[in-house]
Design a protein around this nucleic acid. Sequence first.
DNA 1: GTCTATAATTTGATAGAC
DNA 2: GTCTATCAAATTATAGAC
Lengths: 209, 209
Amino acid sequence: MAIKRKDSSTEQKIVVAAQKTFMLRGYDGARMQDIADQAGINKAMLHYYFDTKDKLFEMVFATAYTQIAPNLSILTNESVPLMLRVENFVNHYTTVLMEQPQLASFVVNELNRNPEKVMHFLRGLVSDNTLAQAFMRSVEKEGKTNANMAKLHPIHLLMHIVSLCYFPFVGKPLFQYLLKLDEFQFQIVLEQRKQETILFLKLMIEGKK
Amino acid sequence: MAIKRKDSSTEQKIVVAAQKTFMLRGYDGARMQDIADQAGINKAMLHYYFDTKDKLFEMVFATAYTQIAPNLSILTNESVPLMLRVENFVNHYTTVLMEQPQLASFVVNELNRNPEKVMHFLRGLVSDNTLAQAFMRSVEKEGKTNANMAKLHPIHLLMHIVSLCYFPFVGKPLFQYLLKLDEFQFQIVLEQRKQETILFLKLMIEGKK
DNA sequence: GTCTATAATTTGATAGAC
DNA sequence: GTCTATCAAATTATAGAC
């Protein structure tokens, strides 16, 4: 035992421990001591590798955001029918969130609580800048070939889709309490939701069951 | 033995200040000093009136929860048609959340981050215990008189409704960033959503536009 | 009831030995 | 690169005067 590892291995242990701790407790609730304990090292090491709590946090947030921020390009690729794009979107994020249930809650909450720590990172992301407009155009285009969705407003469609996919995870404790579902039962409901949500959205987009 | 009467006006100032601070920063991010400053008093007074930070928080959370926890009785009153109940629900919570935009984010986040501080309060609420079942029954009953919604699962309908109403507020910073909406534009979108959401749900429940 | 001053504890960060 | 020991600041909470 007590075999000293190389830098990258220690760094990796820190990253994993920091992800767990920040996701579970948020920036304000996370303690450097907890991260050190979970990584099996001491606090001094954390600062040796990542300097400050803020830098550690930014690293964790950046990874989390790129994993969960709605990838609008999935919804924007016009070579694929709109409904299929939506289906891919729902399936993708439901799967990702079932693997990391606190991801959405973490990102959404830090955006609310610590915007100043997070905004300078978001401003660095130029990739998102035109995607929203591209999505709107592609929905409007679809409206011209499908009378059923002529009145469908792109912004609201996007908010519907994202809300239906994300909130079940963000509001997990609320739903579990209200519906008296244990962990196993809740997982089943989440799995069912892939189909339920797609069916629901299909009804709206294509105007038929 | 002589019980000192606490100044209700000071107490009220503390309550308001605590609500603002906890809602904005969460339990972990809130500082007693900030609450004192905002109430125009000093920290000693806070402890004189509410003893500990935990007690102050529990008071704030209890009020917030009862304001925003989905009032399922709105959805359960079988003397009103299901679709009208849903409409009332959407209108009610959209209005409440537009008046207090951080309410949903606060409650949902504390349920995730500090369940131990919050669960003993939730356990004290017996009123919610049977409402979920009542809602399920009333939806299933409606299914027997309306072929269009025969396949509509009550749990998923509930999760759809709550997700569509709450997430636009919880995810407000995310949507504002993605869609490049300023405060004014976002308020307009939220106002539109009342009708958009109801239309969407009507389509599902009644199977028609 | 309200205040000032201060205690007691927690926490992020650093110094320095090995 | 890793550790122990410790600092400085922040933060909840209390003591005691008025």
